[in-house]
Amino acid sequence: MSPDLHTVEGIARVVGVDGAVAWLEPEQTSSCGSCASAASCGAGDTNPAGGIGTVADRIAARRFALANANGLRVGERVVVGVAERALIRAALTAYGLPLATALTAGGLAESAWGSDLATLAAMAGGLLGGLLLARLVAHRLRARGELAPHFLRRARPGETCGGSAT
């Protein structure tokens, strides 16, 4: 089956079931350990005990909840997905919005005062304002359910992010 081009898929493992809610942790992809940046993202850290900055710590920080309508059990691997448009919208909200407000504030301050210090202060203020605005937009996106991954299917044995079962 070819992957749906409009959905970003990933594999997650069920780490807990709490009534109608299942808690999942995203799986590290097979290519992570061989990436040149593995050391910086923690993928190169082989310490299974975890700790700040290790891959176990980062994966635990990305734990998420899913409505358990499919009878998921602890230890099961499932394929979850988010809409491609949602990913880009989230990136624009988190990064694009604060940048836009910072640059706008900086441009206005530069044209008003023409001082480096004033421009720097205005940009920092614009950045903070943009982050607050991003928080509001993120709340709206969350309320509409656009940021939550949804269950697609149970993963086949040996299936990786690439979609191939070996």
Partner: peptide
């Protein structure tokens, strides 16, 4: 840290990119 504080959902979705940028 800021993205995590501003919106944990956005962090879950986008946090994977950030550590990679350190070595860019």
């Amino acid at each position: 840290l800021t993205i995590k504080k501003v919106s944990p959902e956005l962090f879950q979705m986008l946090g994977i990119y950030l550590p990679l940028i350190t070595t860019n």
